[in-house]
Amino acid sequence: MAAERVLVPLSDTVTVRQTVGYAVRAALEDADAVEFHLVAALPYDAAVPEGRSLTEDAEQLLTRAENWVEEDIDDTDATVEIETAVVGTNEYLFGPRDFAEAFEAYATRHDIDQVVLDPEYQPGQTAQLIQPLERELTALGLSYEEAPVDRPARHERLIGGGTERFDQLFATFWISYGFYLILGDPTAPFDLVTGAAVAGIVSISLAYVTFTFPLGRLRSPLRTVRFALYIPYLLYEIVKANLAISVVILRPSMPIEPVLTRVNARVRGGLPLLALANSITLTPGTLTVRADDQRLIVHTLLPGARDDLFDGALERAVRFVFHGRSGARIPTPRERDDTEIIGGDDV
């Protein structure tokens, strides 16, 4: 019987052990000779100097996984080969699409017939806007099987976690307290007391849901201030775009020119991408149809709106909010050749 080749993408999740166990069991059921490919993919952070520790972590995980496979095949007489690999070390894996492509390339190189996925493994899933890995794998035509695993409920410990945890609690507490007092009466003692109680409960139970990233003590308040500056600018853009589109709609000839474009946005991370995609949709004339990682597929209705999009004013503004003034100095999408007009069939 031909050797079956199984690809197991790994990352340090709570269910990684069970996934490996399942992959071994399932593969040995219907084959005597199995080749296991244990692969860890590195996210884009690997490119920065701190990324070295990520690479080391990945290698350690692979070594551990190799031992697990050996443990699991102990009592069978099947021929098993184990290959380990780290992918994405010299690429720039950002979203699920990039990860899926990396796995697909690996699968083609090694003639893989089966992929076993860890259901907790969600690489690059930094915003709900982005399509998940499973979907991207299906789009690439790579069949996968999800390992049935038991997983514990996700919760954080109340104590511990250091300053990072404290910052998250602190920020959530004051944001919810402030919101409560805005809705209520900031001078009434009753509201002050109940507000503190509610904010306490909210921050303990929801702080780690609200902030999935570490907060910077200087950076985060600064971003909030810059965001406040961004709102009037966005309003101005909205009014401008609204007027332009109203004129077109009310003209009897209605000179619209709907075109589908793809813009490669230079914003890193889920939150900036979300802010940019939402701002694009909020201005009439441009509409984000899809977000495949940083590649936004934008439907544009008017040539003027399209030019604005290609000039990247909103992108620069979002970069200003998240990275400061130096981050905003970036060539326009048109100049760096990140824009493309695509046909209607490519959505």
Binding site: L129, E257, P258, V259, L260, A277, N278, S279, T281, L282, L287, T288, V289, R290, I297, H299, G343, G344, D345, V347
Partner: peptide
């Protein structure tokens, strides 16, 4: 608002509705 608009557009794209583009017109 943008969330809803994006949801509509994305679900339209996913159910295979081809947008009418300038060339078609």
């Amino acid at each position: 608002n943008p969330t809803a608009a994006h949801a509509i557009a994305r679900s339209a794209a996913e159910s295979g509705i081809t947008p009418l583009t300038a060339e078609d017109e």
